[in-house]
């Protein structure tokens, strides 16, 4: 469907299309930034409620950043950032690489732990940018759009994130 033909998001099909298209990315983005899955889910839901209530004032093109901004602000206003508890898919390590030694697997687990800690000590914006790109596969331009900053700013965040992670892990 061509949702750009609509002036606002008051039609349910437009609204549900936008929800399905963007809610996951917004939810995960908020989660990567602030760390609490449950609360992230909640603020995103509330942000979409707000979108529905103000549907006449928002064009489909603006809906995503509108919801993200509201969710982000609500999170900032109400909640304190917590540790990000990330899950790793280690099935690849354990099944496909059975030839790997237990020591290697142990090392990998240890490294994941270090990475987790390093990610948690990153500034919110850097952690969010890093995970949105690495885990969600979002392009810098997409993240820049969501955050409302330039692509260059995202590149900077990404660069600093990786640099800081490396330094934390290597214990510099």
């Amino acid at each position: 469907m061509n949702i750009e033909n609509h002036d606002n998001v008051c039609k349910e099909e437009v609204f549900s299309f936008l929800f399905n298209a963007h809610s996951k990315a917004i939810f995960r983005s908020i989660f990567y930034k602030y760390g609490n899955e449950e609360k992230a889910y909640d603020v995103v839901q509330e942000a979409f409620v707000k979108l529905w209530e103000h549907c006449a004032k928002v064009t489909p093109g603006k809906a995503k950043s509108y919801v993200y901004t509201i969710a982000n602000n609500n999170y900032l206003n109400v909640l304190k950032a917590e540790k990000v508890r990330l899950k790793y898919n280690n099935s690849g390590l354990e099944n496909d690489r059975t030839q790997e030694s237990p020591e290697y697997l142990m090392e990998e687990k240890e490294f994941q732990q270090k990475l987790d800690n390093a990610l948690n000590s990153l500034p919110e914006n850097q952690r969010q940018t890093f995970l949105m790109n690495r885990v969600e596969g979002k392009k810098y331009a997409e993240i820049a759009d969501l955050e409302g900053v330039s692509v260059k700013a995202i590149e900077k965040r990404m660069h600093l994130a990786l640099k800081t992670l490396r330094e934390t892990i290597d214990g510099i």
Binding site: R28, E108, Q112, F130, R134, I169
Partner: peptide, 11 residues
């Protein structure tokens, strides 16, 4: 870091 982060799963 890049290899390990590739195994991270989003919620």
């Amino acid at each position: 870091i890049v290899d390990a982060s590739a195994r991270i799963e989003g919620p």
